[in-house]
């Protein structure tokens, strides 16, 4: 279905949560809140009051709208984003070169590992890309080698060396 026709169908806000992967039509306040809160939340006792003042609305409206966006799955999470490299864990982006005919079987082997946080298929000869999260570097390397051995697919392990600052996430 064309996204535009979906948007027309879901003009009533109540119905939006039934189409969890379909694009939503956001009102002005929702857009402003999303754009504002991709930046930092004020660290004050009443952060949503400050946001409301900035946007010229009320605290209760901000709270209502944010909870609704969370419930509808437009926001998947609200809160602190930890820097994994400063925490106790160890992370890496890895890829496998999987034969086209064997993708489902290999994906289920990879997904079995609780250390696999994300796993995406991409249109490249290195086609299966997943993030490994382990307690330490040794565990991560061991899991990666185990995955390569179990799947029999060539693998690459590409941990982050440096992160470049990225500003606002997705303007709406």
């Amino acid at each position: 279905m064309h996204p535009d026709s979906v948007e027309k169908k879901i003009s009533k806000q109540k119905s939006r949560s039934h189409l969890l992967q379909e694009p939503v039509n956001l009102n002005e306040l929702e857009k402003q809140l999303i754009n504002r809160l991709q930046g930092d939340l004020p660290l004050t006792e009443r952060p949503f009051l400050q946001i409301a003042d900035e946007l010229g609305t009320t605290e209760s409206e901000v709270i209502l709208v944010l909870n609704r966006l969370l419930e509808e799955g437009v926001i998947t999470r609200f809160g602190p984003l930890f820097d994994i490299s400063k925490g106790s864990g160890c992370f890496s982006l890895c890829a496998l070169k999987v034969p086209q005919t064997d993708i489902d079987r290999i994906a289920s082997i990879v997904n079995e590992f609780p250390q696999v946080a994300h796993n995406y298929l991409r249109d490249n000869e290195w086609n299966m890309w997943f993030v490994l999260a382990a307690k330490c570097q040794d565990e991560l390397t061991a899991i990666f080698e185990q995955i390569v051995e179990l799947t029999g697919c060539p693998g690459i392990n590409c941990p982050k060396e440096k992160e470049f600052f990225v500003g606002l996430n997705l303007p709406v």
């Binding site: 930092d40 939340l41 437009v74 926001i75 999470r77 984003l81 996430n169 997705l170």
Partner: peptide
């Protein structure tokens, strides 16, 4: 340790 406090979008 915390990068920012805010939202993750779908």
């Amino acid at each position: 340790t915390t990068k920012r406090v805010g939202m993750v979008l779908n």
